[in-house]
């Protein structure tokens, strides 16, 4: 499915939840949402997006967090799935799987097209897992997948987009943190 179309479905359902975007989803998410509850994790430490999202979800369990993470990033720290399963944050981890390192020229990630990510998430102890290969199925299943008790693992197969450059965050990091904290009522 188209990456942007997949994220537009999330924007319809996100409500007042925090949305953390990483890597290739940063630019796409900023095209579909401009909420102060959006946090573009750039500059980042690749692979730490789910961990950062989990910390925020533990800090704000009533609000919840949606994390948009690429397959290359998740593969860097698969162990976090076990930690998420044990801590049970209200977190919706959305895997944006295009099978490639998009920004570096489209080299395939290890195990592209072979790895069963829902099986890995379920094996780690995350009870609610979903996989959607087409936009039609994602639109039909998103209401159930993006609501209810977390943690939830959602695997979306999206098209690889050739020619993507390094993503840019919509605001400098300090400004993003300030906006998010004000929206969360932590600071003025």
């Amino acid at each position: 499915m188209d990456h942007k179309a997949a994220l537009e479905v999330i924007a319809l359902h996100r409500g007042e939840r925090i949305v953390i975007s990483t890597m290739g989803s940063v630019g796409v998410w900023s095209e579909v949402s401009q909420s102060p509850l959006d946090f573009a994790y750039l500059p980042s430490s690749m692979g730490q997006g789910p961990a950062l999202a989990m910390g925020l979800a533990l800090a704000h369990p009533q609000r919840g967090v949606i994390a948009l993470v690429g397959d290359g990033s998740l593969l860097m720290n698969l162990g976090v799935l076990v930690t998420i399963a044990e801590q049970k944050p209200r977190m919706y981890l959305v895997l944006i799987d295009n099978g490639a390192y998009e920004i570096t020229g489209g080299q395939p990630v290890p195990g592209a097209g072979v790895v069963d990510y829902t099986m890995i998430a379920k094996g780690a102890g995350i009870a609610r897992t979903y996989r959607f290969d087409t936009l039609e199925k994602w639109m039909a299943g998103s209401q159930e997948a993006l609501h209810g008790l977390g943690p939830v693992f959602i695997w979306l197969k999206v098209d690889y987009r050739p020619g993507q450059g390094t993503p840019r965050a919509p605001f400098p990091m300090d400004e993003q943190i300030r906006r998010l904290r004000v929206a969360l009522g932590i600071s003025q």
């Binding site: 997006g49 961990a51 950062l52 989990m54 910390g55 925020l56 930690t83």
Partner: peptide
Amino acid sequence: ATREGESIGIAGGLLLGG
């Protein structure tokens, strides 16, 4: 945490969240 870098990432989220 399963790995030390992961523990720092989680701590970052907690700090961001106040």
